[in-house]
């Protein structure tokens, strides 16, 4: 019988940032494996999932020549709008009730609720981003869409949107452990928000008063900012990124307080 290996490499302590990075990485891999399976094509779903959605919407809009209130190229319009929506919508979707299924892991003291949320959000962020980049590249290679005019602005808007999505996900995730209502209400809520989030229109096409109200939605600001970066001079964008930053900051703060306050009991099975 092999003896138990020398155990002096146990780094149970370590600096807390090291421990946290290790835990999040482990959760990330675990999540990846459980969601997409062991076989090699499994990981492709991470990109394929959001891509299929975007493709379908693009196809429908192209076929019906949908009015989106501008003369922007439709493929690029769909890709920017829908990829963005997928991200802020899926992050909360992944975090709501996430703790319930991961409760037993809390028996490992270094695994905290925040780690579970961060791992899931990060995975969602990577999936959406890779899908976004892949779609642009694919459509660009067959000349269906052009590359962004200002890639850096697109990136900036994307990151701000990801921040918003993550804050929202943490908030809803933490509340969902306290009340089951969140799980039931989020799906209809996200459908209601979808038409207003800028996926299917640009703010400039709205009556001024409606626009002013809708611009309280951070995701609309982000999408406008992303689209301005993408189309540049072809559109007149409306946004206030300082507002988004302040909104995100407050959202994240409240969400972190709620996550910190989670009083979950690790359960045996």
């Amino acid at each position: 019988m092999a003896s138990n290996p020398s155990l002096n490499d146990t780094k149970l302590g370590g600096s807390s940032i090291n421990v946290q990075v290790r835990v999040i990485y482990a959760l990330l891999v675990r999540e990846l494996l459980t969601r997409y399976g062991r076989n090699n094509v499994g990981f492709v779903w991470l990109i394929l999932e959001p891509m299929l959605f975007t493709l379908t919407i693009t196809a429908i809009w192209t076929a019906t020549q949908s009015i989106h209130g501008s003369d922007l190229p439709i493929v690029a319009f769909a890709v920017t709008g829908y990829s963005a929506m997928m991200m802020w919508r899926n992050m909360p979707g992944r975090c709501i009730g996430a703790l319930t299924s991961n409760k037993p892991l809390l028996f490992h003291r270094q695994v905290r609720p925040l780690d579970v949320y961060v791992a899931r959000n990060f995975l969602e962020f990577i999936g959406s981003s890779v899908a976004f980049i892949f779609l642009i590249t694919a459509f660009w290679s067959v000349d269906w869409m052009k590359l962004p005019e200002d890639a850096l602005q697109v990136l900036g808007g994307w990151l701000m949107l990801a921040w918003f999505g993550m804050g929202l996900a943490l908030l809803l995730g933490a509340i969902s452990e306290r009340s089951e209502l969140v799980e039931k209400l989020w799906s209809p809520m996200s459908y209601l928000l979808f038409p207003f989030s800028g996926a299917a229109f640009i703010a400039d096409s709205l009556p001024e008063r409606v626009r002013e109200v809708l611009l309280y939605l951070p995701m609309l600001n982000c999408v406008e900012f992303i689209r301005e970066g993408y189309f540049g001079s072809m559109m007149k964008a409306h946004y206030d990124m300082a507002y988004v930053a302040i909104f995100n900051l407050c959202l994240t703060f409240v969400a972190l307080v709620l996550v910190r306050g989670l009083n979950v009991e690790a359960d045996y099975e």
């Binding site: 092999a2 003896s3 490499d9 146990t10 370590g14 290790r22 482990a26 490992h108």
Partner: peptide, 15 residues
């Protein structure tokens, strides 16, 4: 488990 505790996997596997 090895990842979250930061220990070497191969040695543990044998055991």
């Amino acid at each position: 488990i090895c990842r979250i505790y930061g220990v070497n996997f191969d040695e543990r596997l044998a055991f």
